[in-house]
Deep mutational scan, measured.
Amino acid sequence: MIVFVRFNSSHGFPVEVDSDTSIFQLKEVVAKRQGVPADQLRVIFAGKELRNDWTVQNCDLDQQSIVHIVQRPWRKGQEMNATGGDDPRNAAGGCEREPQSLTRVDLSSSVLPGDSVGLAVILHTDSRKDSPPAGSPAGRSIYNSFYVYCKGPCQRVQPGKLRVQCSTCRQATLTLTQGPSCWDDVLIPNRMSGECQSPHCPGTSAEFFFKCGAHPTSDKETSVALHLIATNSRNITCITCTDVRSPVLVFQCNSRHVICLDCFHLYCVTRLNDRQFVHDPQLGYSLPCVAGCPNSLIKELHHFRILGEEQYNRYQQYGAEECVLQMGGVLCPRPGCGAGLLPEPDQRKVTCEGGNGLGCGFAFCRECKEAYHEGECSAVFEASGTTTQAYRVDERAAEQARWEAASKETIKKTTKPCPRCHVPVEKNGGCMHMKCPQPQCRLEWCWNCGCEWNRVCMGDHWFDV
């Protein structure tokens, strides 16, 4: 396979590697080409510095992935760790964990309700045991953590790749202090920090972006993250068709209702045909949960890209028209025109101005929308079919299609509260000796007794199943 190397943020060049090629071997190839010592090179990928003893497969490097290699003399205490030698983080029983690669970060837990604080980093599902597709590297999971809308060759929703760059020099040479644990960490600028490894760059702020994971991409090709779309790892039924499908869209209502993408497309087109989208002054033209839940309008309007190009163009047109109407304007009634106009409040005669090729020149009556006339309008008909009709959803289907309910059931079956801080902690095999993952707590306690870890627990039921 081919990976592209950008040395000291210059133009990239291809390097041929195998899945079992080590990072140090990659350094040696680059060092020979650039005429520099291999031990002064640092390989940066997806916000993480890659260790010498890791392989291309370990690092989730795919065909035509772009890695950054910078030349920086080692500072005291760094060289041993980078070589894969006596790194205290690798000691058996050590409590410190390697910062998780962005290629394996899962933010789907952050669609849980606000009262489930902490689960994004504490609760991990076991539903990723799908067998890898044919042709994928051994052991590589097909679980997708992110979804994007690819405006490039795909023109559809695709699995996405999370990447990070330095907000100062805009190069992907920043190593994160810690990985993101929720969508806010990724979507809110300057929320996460790190250290830029580019020479002479003092940058410390992280800037995240997404790429389409279905095809090789260049540095400049980015895609918009659709953070309401998630892999259906909890096997929730769709609120409309009641099938279990994946991926799904999880509405931001209190129940976190789930809808499959085909039904979401149908829901949007139906509402669009009836012009029953909601115009929100802050958000724009949007839709609420299909069950009509309060405070559930979709905030990231790129989710409506699921409509496809033709329907999305209609959505944008109707949204612009609705904006004009909300501002007190009118639409030209001549067939084939429909231009938005903003006449004076007491102006009865409205002319669709033909300047700049935008208007048709038609003069019409503001009251009856017919060709302009003197005197009273002959008839004014009330528009028919403008009443909002509820999208029919079966109550039982709505009850079963809740992301929140599956989460709470998982928590109930696989977790116990920490005796000190009461945060839910998952036990997935292993011994009875637990350690609270909350940095402010870190209590060592017994899963069996529910009390602080002691010699009695150690001698009596340390390794009970």
Rank of each mutant, 00 (worst) to 15 (best):
A46K: 13
T270G: 04
V111Y: 12
N254C: 07
V393E: 04
V423G: 15
C182D: 11
V70T: 03
N144T: 09
G430R: 14
D60E: 14
V30C: 06
H303S: 04
F24R: 10
E452M: 15
C368T: 03
I239T: 06
R104N: 13
Q64L: 09
P99T: 12
W74F: 13
K299W: 05
G361I: 03
L102E: 14
A120M: 06
L358P: 14
R89D: 14
H227L: 05
K211W: 05
C241D: 02
N81T: 14
S246M: 02
C332H: 03
P437K: 04
S116T: 11
E207R: 07
D62T: 14
P417S: 11
Y149I: 04
D18T: 13
D126N: 10
R42S: 14
C268L: 04
P37T: 08
N356S: 12
W453S: 02
E404F: 08
V164P: 03
F4G: 07
C95L: 15
V465N: 15
L176R: 02
E376A: 14
P335G: 06
Q64C: 13
L50T: 00
L102N: 12
V250H: 03
G308F: 03
L297C: 06
P437T: 08
E98R: 09
G338C: 07
G84W: 12
I259F: 01
T415Q: 09
L162G: 02
A230W: 06
W54V: 07
Q155S: 11
M432G: 03
G340W: 04
G284M: 02
I229R: 01
G94F: 13
P424K: 09
H227G: 15
C166W: 01
N295M: 08
A398Q: 14
V36R: 03
Q64I: 03
G340P: 15
R234W: 05
D126C: 06
R396K: 12
F13Q: 05
G77D: 14
W462G: 15
R163K: 11
D243Y: 11
C201G: 02
C431E: 04
F304S: 01
N144W: 06
N454L: 02
K129I: 11
I2Q: 13
F251A: 02
I411A: 09
A339L: 12
S22K: 14
E452A: 15
G355R: 11
E207M: 06
C431D: 04
D184R: 06
V248L: 05
N313W: 15
G357S: 10
I259Q: 09
V157G: 02
I44G: 01
K435G: 03
D39V: 03
G284W: 02
P73G: 07
S65R: 05
V36S: 02
S19F: 06
T217D: 14
V269Y: 03
L325I: 10
C360M: 02
P99E: 15
L287Q: 00
G85S: 12
Q165Y: 09
F4Y: 12
C212R: 00
C212N: 01
K369N: 07
T222L: 08
R140I: 09
Q400H: 14
E452G: 15
E370D: 10
F463H: 00
G93N: 12
S223V: 09
D62V: 13
E376N: 12
G450W: 02
